[in-house]
């Protein structure tokens, strides 16, 4: 496969950036898991906290999306 070393570096970097998504997955799982364990302890309070759950998931997920964006930028824009 012909190509230059800059492109190779960009692709490797894109791949490495994708590991950030794993972190986001951990974060989202942590948020959801803790919500679930709390909800199972006190189910009556769970319904009122779903909005907070989604906000937490959104914050955790945004960082994974950033790493995805970095990967895309390396793939297409650099």
């Amino acid at each position: 496969m012909e190509g230059d070393i800059v492109q190779m570096g960009a692709y490797i970097g894109a791949g490495l950036a994708c590991t950030g998504m794993g972190g986001a997955a951990l974060g989202v799982g942590h948020v959801a898991g803790n919500f679930l364990s709390g909800a199972l302890r006190n189910p009556s309070a769970a319904a009122g906290q779903t909005a907070t759950l989604f906000i937490g998931i959104a914050f955790a997920e945004a960082l994974g999306i950033f790493s995805f964006l970095v990967a895309l930028l390396l793939m297409f824009a650099v």
Partner: peptide, 13 residues
């Protein structure tokens, strides 16, 4: 930034 990239990134991905 996060507000917009979250939405666009999710859709794009």
């Amino acid at each position: 930034v996060s507000h917009s990239i979250r939405l666009a990134g999710n859709m794009m991905a």
